[in-house]
Design a protein around this nucleic acid. Structure first.
Lengths: 251, 251
DNA sequence: GCGGCCAGGTTGGCTGTACAACTTGACGCG
DNA sequence: CGCGTCAAGTTGTACAGCCAACCTGGCCGC
């Protein structure tokens, strides 16, 4: 039985407990979870709440769910939280790596048409561009080119150029990321990339383009990250219950 | 008001209607959806059903949702169905492209340790490896190396080598894909890739490794797809409500 | 004009109920 | 022994209701 502390929804706490149990191997890999009704009684909540918790595990690809039979454990892999997927710093720390970063350049100028569309800005509005190299254990692995609307760019520009994380101070200023749209493909290093990452110009890089929005739905960041091959991979789970991944032709 | 036909759940039909409305621009980009209660009345269903429908749109990144205020439309982009993300053929057709494929090689042999782990097979069990080149408008864009457990490999081996789709005939044999785990990174073309794709050996390729399971949770396919750069990109949406994407260090 | 307060609207969270659809294993029949 | 049938168990879908948390806009006082 879990006690409600009012700070986190009940179903999230139940989900966390179930996740823990799964990664501890309490149900075995390929094993079966107890029935919803049994879980509801065990945790002292209604079946609806249990179903909300299980929907989270389902979306993470930890369990199946199918009418007529109990849920099956798919894998015991630890799943990243949303904040770990959004923040390079938090992601690296959660893996026990030592993240670092250095701001190389900051520019303010009127938004070009693409930036205006991505950030939903009007003509003439200014953006703030930040070029940053990011490291794991002091080794450069990624070049990050972020574009912020003016009011957020002001905050970023005011940070220590050697600050490890930008996400954390932004959150302290009340900027919250809630939705992120990613596009992943391959691109080739330009002269800047080559110099910062220590590869040759023209070398292939894994590219992640990202558009983040705050709770109100307005875009707060548009970023292009270029990773040295062999340093990171992206993983996605999708199921017939909830589609998140898609494939696009490059335009 | 939508009529129940028994073939599809009510909340899925409501979701489809809302999706249509969004892509038609009925609410505008950045506009607001009607309140849940209003939608419930409009569609003649309960608020709970509306909430299930909206949860689907939320997971697709089409709308925000935040306590206290109506939902905001995030984008009007068409979202791929699960079957379009799983099947290269269906994906290509949904974009108006002409997909093709040719089986280059089929091999049966005992599973190696990695394959045994991915497909959850016992020692000594056989797998079926299929090497295939896939085309868009007759242009090779991807090399697919799939590993199937024996009973599924039999079906695949029996197909016409020039068959455009393998997924469709597999489904006709009762093989259903419900969960897929993807890992996306960069790799380099080997001699086979180079010959099939018409690039030089050592050229960078966008790699997608995929492990698919059926409704019972048992793995049915483990595949490695290598795309020519500039042909496709992967897109993912994730939100604080439901995390699907994650980043991994390459091991 | 400005700022704080408040009421109304809206979504989040949780409970309870009912039935449908489906799976599984046991049983019995041929 | 093989097969179909059946009952019990389990999840999916849908409904109704209640309250809390939160946002917005308008009103009022200063």
């Amino acid at each position: 039985m879990i006690v409600a502390d009012g700070r986190q929804a009940m179903y999230r706490k139940v989900a966390a407990e179930l996740r823990q149990g799964i990664s501890d191997g309490a149900y075995g890999s390929g094993g079966r979870l107890p029935a919803e009704a049994a879980l509801a009684e065990a945790y002292g909540v209604s079946r609806g709440t249990i179903r909300q918790a299980l929907a989270l595990l389902r979306a993470d690809g930890l369990v199946t769910s199918r009418r007529g039979t109990r849920r099956v454990v798919l894998g015991t892999a630890r799943v990243q939280t949303f904040s770990e997927t959004v923040s390079f710093t938090r992601w690296a720390r959660s893996l026990g790596e030592e993240p670092g970063g250095r701001v190389v350049d900051v520019v303010r100028r009127p938004a070009d048409p693409v930036e205006r569309e991505k950030l939903r800005l009007a003509e003439g509005e200014e953006v703030c561009l930040v070029l940053r190299v990011r490291t794991l254990s002091a080794v450069p692995v990624m070049v990050e080119r972020s574009v912020y609307p003016r009011h957020i760019g002001e905050i970023v520009a005011g940070l220590d150029p050697a600050a490890v994380s930008h996400t954390v101070p932004l959150e302290e200023h009340g900027v919250r990321f809630t939705d992120v749209h990613h596009t992943i493909d391959v691109t080739y290093a330009d002269a800047d990339d080559a110099a910062l990452l220590g590869c040759r110009a023209g070398a292939a890089l894994l590219r992640e383009r990202r558009c983040s929005t705050d709770p109100t739905g307005s875009p707060v960041e548009w970023s292009e990250d270029r990773y040295l091959p062999g340093t990171v991979a992206f993983t996605v789970h999708n199921s017939s219950a909830a589609t998140a991944l898609s494939r696009r032709t490059t335009t």
